[in-house]
């Protein structure tokens, strides 16, 4: 009787196990072995720090992602706080418009950046009219930054708004009754209250920026960020082992950032309970 039940449960788990093995374990194992099978051998994994080119790619990807994360948190934090705390006509419409970019794939975001800051872009024509020279930054890392900011902000605004709604207003009133200025209330009460939400939203934002490909690919194939480097190694040079090694490093860094964020956010949540 019991064995039959166990058998039944095992049968139920089977599809999940098959999927996990087929799409996670096997490719991952293959990736690890491919990474170590090139002319460099397992040293391919070290190439990311020893090879100046790859290392620069890593540094610019991480720097870009950190920059995007912090800028997003600042912009979306302020906007989310404002939108949640103030009621004005058209607020609901504005909030739903703000979440619109969530529906776009990276390619479309890249396209929009080009229309904004490309050679025929809006910013270019305005600066041309004003100063006689076109400001074009769509095809550089600055364009990438603008694109990533554009699709990160809506996500974070929504998270922040949900978190602001759950803040206990009495805490802010208590701080004010004790003489705290608005800035002190923000620093001592509001931000600590939003901390778990900001950390987890920031982590997601960082992970997305690390791995985003579509936008970078649309803007230019020669922007030196890791996903593009992996792509070119793989398609242009058929350098499978380096592509595999870089992919793993990219994955591990992103995964580690998420794990750290989860611990940090978790411990604050426990402290706030």
């Amino acid at each position: 009787m019991r064995t039959r039940e166990n058998l039944f449960l095992a049968l139920l788990a089977l599809p999940a196990m098959v999927v996990f093995a087929a799409f996670w374990l096997l490719p991952m194992a293959r990736l690890v072995s491919v990474g170590a099978s090139g002319p460099r051998g397992p040293a391919a994994y070290l190439a990311i720090v020893t090879d100046a080119n790859y290392f620069a790619s890593l540094v610019s990807t991480v720097t870009l992602s950190i920059g995007v994360t912090f800028s997003t948190l600042v912009v979306a934090g302020i906007a989310g706080m404002f939108l949640q705390r103030n009621d004005f006509p058209g607020r609901a419409v504005l909030v739903s418009l703000l979440t619109f970019p969530l529906a776009f794939p990276g390619v479309v975001i890249g396209f929009m950046v080009i229309m904004l800051a490309g050679r025929q872009g809006l910013i270019g024509s305005v600066t041309d009219a004003l100063f006689g020279s076109k400001l074009v930054f769509a095809y550089s890392i600055a364009g990438l930054f603008a694109g990533y900011l554009y699709f990160s902000i809506p996500r974070v605004i929504l998270t922040v708004m949900a978190a602001v709604e759950k803040l206990d207003r009495a805490l802010e009133e208590a701080a004010r009754s004790l003489g705290a200025t608005p800035w002190q209330v923000l620093r001592d009460v509001v931000l600590p209250g939003l901390r778990p939400a900001l950390i987890s939203a920031g982590a997601i934002c960082f992970a997305t920026s690390m791995g985003a490909f579509g936008t970078a690919f649309t803007l230019a194939t020669n922007i030196n960020v890791l996903p593009i480097t992996i792509y070119t190694e793989f398609t242009n040079y058929a350098n499978f082992s380096i592509a595999a090694a870089l992919s793993l490093v990219l994955g591990v860094i992103t995964w580690a950032a998420l794990a750290v964020a989860r611990t940090l956010a978790g411990s604050t949540v426990a402290a706030a309970a």
């Binding site: 009495a170 805490l171 009133e173 208590a174 004010r176 009754s177 003489g179 009460v189 600590p192």
Partner: peptide, 18 residues
Amino acid sequence: IERRNVGMVFQSYALFPN
């Protein structure tokens, strides 16, 4: 309120959890 120098005790206490 921040310039009235009052002391306030809230029903929920509103102690700062952090």
